[in-house]
C-alpha cells in the first residue's frame, strides 16, 4: 500500500481509535497531524508513540465545533506539510444522555461537533485535495448510523446525518479525485470494553469471534482505504464490528 510520503490529518487522535489510526499511518510512512481538543496529554502520548516508532507527526489543537478553529487547524497542517492527502475525521462527542436527558444545549453540542464539525473539516481540506486531483476522506462513524443505541438518541442522529453527509460528499467530490468513505465500528476496546487475555463466554454472546474490536482493526482499514488501490471505492460505509450487529 502506498501510505508512505502521504500527509494525513487524524481528528480526535489523543485517544482510542484516533490514536490507533494516527500511529498506524505514521508507522507506514505518512506524516500525521495528531489533532486533539480536550485530550492534550493523550495527544502528546500519541506523538510519543509515533516518535518511538520512528514516524513523523505534529500535534494540533482545535475545537471542531468551531469553523474558525477547523480552518486554522487545516491551514497550520498545510503550512507544515505542504499538502494534505488524507483526512480521517474521528473526533466525536457522545454524552450518553437518553431522550429525556438531552436538552437544546446538549443536542447542539453533539450535532455541532459530530456533524457540523465533520462537514466543515471536509470543506476545509477540499481545496488542498482538489488542487492535486487526489484525496482520501474517511469518516469514522458507527454501527449506530443504522442501529439505535438505546442510550443516546442524539449521538445516533449525528451518525445518521454523517451517513448522508458521506454519500452526498462522495458524489460531489468524485470529480475532484477525492473519495469519501465511512467506517462503522462497533464496540472497540478503548477502555470501556476490555478484551482481556482470556476470551470470556459472555463476549461470544455479543461477538461471534469472541472479542471486541481494537483501534488497530480500524487503523488497518483506514490504511487500506487511504491507499492508492481504492480510487473506485467511494460513498461506501463499511461496518467493522466482528459481525456483532448480525447477532
Amino acid at each position: 500500500m502506498t501510505i508512505s510520503g502521504k500527509n494525513a490529518i487524524v481528528t480526535g487522535a489523543g485517544t482510542g481509535i484516533g490514536r490507533g489510526v494516527a500511529l498506524e499511518l505514521a508507522k507506514r510512512g505518512a506524516s500525521v497531524a495528531v489533532h486533539y481538543n480536550s485530550s492534550e496529554a493523550g495527544a502528546f502520548q500519541t506523538k510519543r508513540l509515533i516518535d518511538e516508532a520512528g514516524g513523523s507527526c505534529i500535534t494540533v489543537k482545535a475545537n471542531v465545533a468551531s469553523k474558525e478553529e477547523i480552518d486554522r487547524m487545516v491551514e497550520t497542517v498545510a503550512d507544515r506539510f505542504g499538502r494534505i492527502d488524507i483526512l480521517v475525521s474521528n473526533a466525536a462527542l457522545q454524552l450518553n444522555l437518553d431522550l429525556f436527558g438531552h436538552d437544546d444545549d446538549t443536542y447542539d453540542r453533539t450535532m455541532n461537533t459530530n456533524v457540523k464539525g465533520y462537514w466543515q473539516t471536509i470543506q476545509a481540506v477540499v481545496p488542498h485535495m482538489k488542487s492535486r486531483n487526489h484525496g482520501r476522506i474517511i469518516l469514522v462513524s458507527s454501527v449506530h448510523s443504522k442501529r439505535p443505541t438505546d442510550f443516546d438518541p442524539i449521538y445516533a442522529m449525528s451518525k445518521g446525518a454523517i451517513r448522508m453527509l458521506g454519500r452526498e460528499s462522495a458524489i460531489e467530490l468524485a470529480g475532484y479525485g477525492i473519495t469519501v468513505n465511512m467506517i462503522e465500528p462497533g464496540a472497540i476496546d478503548v477502555g470501556k470494553f476490555r478484551t482481556g487475555s482470556a476470551q470470556s463466554p459472555e463476549l461470544f454472546k455479543k461477538f461471534p469471534g469472541g472479542r471486541v474490536g481494537l483501534p488497530s482493526d480500524v487503523a488497518e482499514l483506514v490504511c487500506y482505504i487511504a491507499g492508492d488501490a481504492t480510487s473506485f471505492m467511494t460513498g461506501t460505509a463499511i461496518r467493522l464490528d466482528g459481525a456483532s450487529m448480525l447477532l
Partner: peptide, 20 residues
C-alpha cells in the same frame, strides 16, 4: 446535502424513539 443529512438524522431519531 444538509437536507439529506437532516433526514438521515431523523431516521435514527425514529429508531431510538421506537425503542424508548
Amino acid at each position: 446535502f444538509a437536507y439529506s443529512a437532516s433526514k438521515g438524522a431523523v431516521k435514527m431519531l425514529a429508531r431510538e424513539a421506537a425503542l424508548i
